[in-house]
Design a binder for these strands. Structure first.
Lengths: 218, 218
DNA sequence: TATATTTGTGGTAATATTTTGATAAAAATA
DNA sequence: TATTTTTATCAAAATATTACCACAAATATA
């Protein structure tokens, strides 16, 4: 069950939205005052925030998002506001904010957004297709005919490196730097073996060997 | 400044994505309807298209891509879709430098893809043309009539040396230093043979022999 | 802590590339 | 033109690189 924290100073609107949310099966924490919300941040794990920007209070939605982001860079946040300038400002400073909605809005519209975002963030994510493979970057899963191929961390990192720049040739050093990091000083034979393991698990992957240089995915 | 054309019929998603794009500094043309987009194609130069496949309209993403490709074979296109089958179909018909992202996606992920593609296609364009040859430095491949010519590491390095300073004359020692490095002390006859091999694989390359000195590409 | 999984290592086999050395061809020189 | 010097060509030999595997070490998991 998702836990949503709702911060809205218009009491009747706040209560109305809360009951909609509960009807959808969400667990709702509600605040009417920015101050109370500010104190609450970090106390419990929240799956989604709905923040009004103007809170008729010394604390605004801006202050809240700052504290939220300092603790969690990814949790989705929906802003609501009556003024377009506020939304522009939020978009200017936020890349993590997943949505905004202008007031006045219909509760139904808000609920649609909430459902979408929760689905997007928590259940679905970005996929890449290659041959018969379906690679889910966020979940770090590879499917082949709907069957999961179990890749280790290094194997997945390597795959991702190849996919993020299809066709590019990587030298052994490039690969060592990307996968093992700058301060790895072991043998570069590990690259060969990692390549071998990835090839074995994903035979349809077209990994070319560039003799004397490195590898590339075509 | 890159110009992106966004075609998406979900109005709120369209607007959200548009503001993300604008925040990244892109110039955005947005369409909610396939028909409007179809009419627009060709009117202005677009650097990247983001097309939803299902447009809830008589016109679909397929129709758009067809017209786009008839005018420009290379412009990058990102497709979005809620259905895997759609992506499969697109994969079947499209070979360009495209990308696909399944709905629902996070705006951040889409932005990452966009940034990557634009960088790859426009700034990081490491392609050099010479006669019928197309040399891609990053990929370390050479194409001739879209067919790959397989060069070894030394051969490619030599080619790259010539291309990075077209017309310059290189002595054998120059070449030994660049390709084999300072601490190679074998015979300089190896240069001849490497030249021979490169000439054989790329006959249209105009490598002149400078009697008593070395070689140059004209 | 015990167990399972993942990652690194070293050796060998398999491959691909480069060098060598011999000879032919071309260019310069006298 | 004859001679010398330099370059082109080729294939076999030498070398370098990569694939593969089994096991050890390290790391994560229960």
């Amino acid at each position: 069950m998702y836990k949503i924290c709702l911060v809205e100073d218009e009491i009747s609107l706040n209560n109305l939205i809360k009951s909609y949310m509960e009807k959808e099966g969400y667990d709702v924490i509600q605040f009417y005052k920015g101050n109370d919300a500010l104190e609450y941040i970090g106390k419990e794990k929240i799956d989604l925030w709905v923040l009004d920007i103007m809170l008729g209070d010394s604390i605004s939605g801006y202050d809240l998002i700052k504290k939220i982001r300092s603790l969690d860079k990814n949790v989705p946040v929906i802003f609501t506001s009556a003024r377009d300038q506020d939304l522009d400002k939020i978009l200017g400073l936020e890349l993590g904010s997943d949505d905004y909605i202008a007031k006045p809005y219909s509760p139904k519209e808000l609920m649609l957004r909430i459902n979408n975002i929760l689905k997007r963030v928590y259940t679905n994510s970005s996929k890449i297709k290659y041959e018969d493979y379906e690679i889910d970057i966020d979940k770090r899963i590879v499917l082949h005919n709907n069957k999961e191929i179990n890749l280790t961390t290094l194997e997945f990192d390597l795959l991702y490196m190849f996919l993020s720049n299809k066709g590019k040739s990587y030298s052994r050093d490039d690969i060592l730097n990307v996968i093992w990091g700058e301060n790895y000083f072991g043998s570069d034979r590990v690259v060969d073996d990692l390549i071998r393991r990835l090839r074995k698990k994903m035979p349809k992957l077209n990994i070319n060997t560039i003799y004397g240089f490195g590898y590339r995915l075509t």
